[in-house]
């Protein structure tokens, strides 16, 4: 208990060491390895010296890589925008129009789908939207359609739809939390000063809840940009995104240096966009002062 700063630091380090050693060995070292591989030469399952930047120049020179990165980025950003826009009114409703004692129940209802098997949810869409799927067969049985709609084969739009559904509950919670923090007397003050409810929302509530919106965007963006299952199942597997492409490069082609370089660039892209989100958040927080 009685501790000098030195002994406190020692106890703290001792306590965290099992977890720290675990993540250093099994996370930091592998990530560093990927980074190292990305500047080595080689192919088909082996890597060797000399060190080279060729893998990166290769990435830059071939448009297929850039196209893939850009496509994945666009898909993830669209999904993010859709989920956040759809989630905001829900979060607003629960925060402002639900009795405090009922809020937990609503949040619980919203989060349950998130905790039910992701694989099953995505696969269900495949069953629903795919060729001979529930949607098509039902529509045909009811005589509304006479040909297969086969929405699942629509590629990118189908992927976006399924991802937006899969990550929807992620967006509600952070927005809800930031709305809960909005001081209710500020809103009364806004209306007291003669603003309409809508203008008060635009000038007070929305800016104050921006940190939650940006947190929500981040929470949706990161897993969607790296999603593997959805492009594989829906979209007929013909629209690979980053994760599918990394698999092809590293496992199927066994091109470790090139695959590593691609993984590094994807990581940088995700990090870059995330930093942009965080900076935007800082601006909002700064702007409130």
């Amino acid at each position: 208990m009685a501790q000098t700063p030195g002994s406190e630091a020692r106890t703290g380090l001792k306590l965290i060491s099992p977890t720290a050693i675990y993540v250093i060995l099994l996370l930091a070292v592998p990530l560093a390895t990927v980074l190292m591989y990305s500047v080595m030469t080689g192919g088909r399952g082996n890597v060797s010296l000399p060190l080279t930047f060729e893998n990166y120049t290769e990435l830059a020179s071939k448009s297929v890589y850039g196209y893939l990165l850009l496509k994945s980025l666009m898909v993830a950003l669209i999904v993010t925008a859709i989920t956040v826009l759809l989630a905001y009114p829900v979060a607003y409703f629960v925060s402002f129009h639900v009795k405090p004692e009922r809020k937990s129940l609503w949040l619980f209802l919203i989060t349950i789908p998130f905790w039910t098997s992701y694989i099953i949810r995505v696969s269900l869409w495949f069953v629903i939207l795919g060729y001979d799927g529930v949607l098509d067969k039902t529509l045909m049985a009811l005589g509304i359609m006479d040909t297969q709609l086969n929405f699942s084969s629509y590629g990118i739009p189908a992927i976006i739809f399924v991802l937006a559904h899969a990550y929807a509950p992620f967006a509600v919670l952070p927005i809800f939390v930031s709305l809960e923090k909005v001081d209710r007397s500020l809103l009364e003050a806004g209306q007291d000063l003669g603003e309409s409810r809508w203008v008060t929302f635009l000038r007070v509530t929305l800016p104050l809840s921006m940190p939650g919106v940006i947190a929500a965007a981040l929470i949706v963006f990161i897993p969607t940009v790296g999603d593997y299952v959805t492009p594989k199942l829906v979209g007929d597997g013909k629209q690979p995104l980053i994760a599918n492409f990394i698999e092809t490069q590293l496992l199927k082609l066994q091109d470790f240096p090139q695959g590593s370089a691609f993984a590094v660039v994807s990581m940088l892209m995700v990090a870059f966009v995330s930093v942009l989100f965080v900076l935007a958040n800082k601006r909002f927080i700064g702007g409130q002062k």
């Binding site: 996370l27 592998p30 990530l31 390895t33 593997y228 980053i242 990394i246 698999e247 993984a263 995700v270």
Partner: peptide
């Protein structure tokens, strides 16, 4: 904040 695929591949 890291795509799971990258963790899996690195490991």
């Amino acid at each position: 904040v890291l795509p799971e695929m990258i963790i899996a591949m690195a490991l």
